[in-house]
């Protein structure tokens, strides 16, 4: 069976849709270098091609999306996959990623006498400690994001999004730590991780 490869702008749109799992054109346009109208037209074409479905005003990727993205990524990101410096940074990322997941869980739950209970966010000192840990972990991605952006400038968007989330958190909007509905640190991190794995043609470790 031959798998269709996508034109780069279509890859960018379908990739973001696959990362977000469900999204409308404006949300996709916010992170790709295309207008909402252009994204909307491309989503319609992707839907006609069987790569997406539109339900309740938002698009979702179909089962055909992943193979097409993988096939396209292996062509356009072949140079990334042989960039030794970048791959070294990816090794470090795996460690940082494990720390991020632990830190996110520590934001959501606190240990009280060996039992994990929901963080009610009344201990400002505890929360600040977690936030500064998050800032440090996000800072460790700088080198990798820069290295990726040298291959494809779209990766620089992640630095912008992390920066905006951290700025919002500093301004008191703590939903930007882990909220799944906003552009929180967890949301941006998750999308970055998935994007990285697809770019490298790797599978997620269990």
């Amino acid at each position: 069976m031959t798998v269709t490869t996508l034109a780069k702008p279509d890859y960018d749109v379908l990739n973001v849709l696959a990362l977000k799992k469900m999204a409308g054109a404006p949300a996709i346009a916010a992170v790709v270098d295309l207008s909402a109208e252009d994204v909307s037209a491309r989503l319609d074409a992707l839907a006609a091609g069987g790569f997406a479905v539109v339900a309740g005003g938002a698009a979702l990727p179909t089962d055909s999306a992943e193979p097409a993205l993988a096939a396209t990524a292996s062509e356009i990101y072949a140079p990334v996959r042989t960039d030794a410096d970048l791959l070294g940074l990816v090794e470090q990322f795996e460690k940082t990623n494990a720390q991020l997941l632990t830190t996110m869980s520590a934001w959501q739950q606190v240990d009280v006498g060996g039992r994990k209970v929901a963080n009610d966010h009344t201990d400002a000192e505890y929360d600040e400690k977690i936030i500064s840990r998050l800032e440090r972990l996000v800072g460790r991605l700088d080198g990798l994001i820069d290295a990726l952006a040298r291959h494809d400038p779209r990766f620089a968007t992640y630095a912008t999004r992390f920066g905006a989330a951290l700025e919002g958190i500093d301004g008191g909007d703590h939903d930007l730590v882990s909220s799944p509905t906003g552009d929180s640190i967890h949301t941006v991190w998750f999308e970055f991780h998935e994007d990285l794995l697809r770019t490298l043609g790797r599978e997620r470790a269990e």
Partner: peptide
């Protein structure tokens, strides 16, 4: 059937 509570899905399920 697999995965840890600290995983992405675990974090999401607590959020939701």
């Amino acid at each position: 059937m697999s995965g840890a509570p600290e995983s992405h899905l675990g974090i999401l399920s607590r959020e939701f």
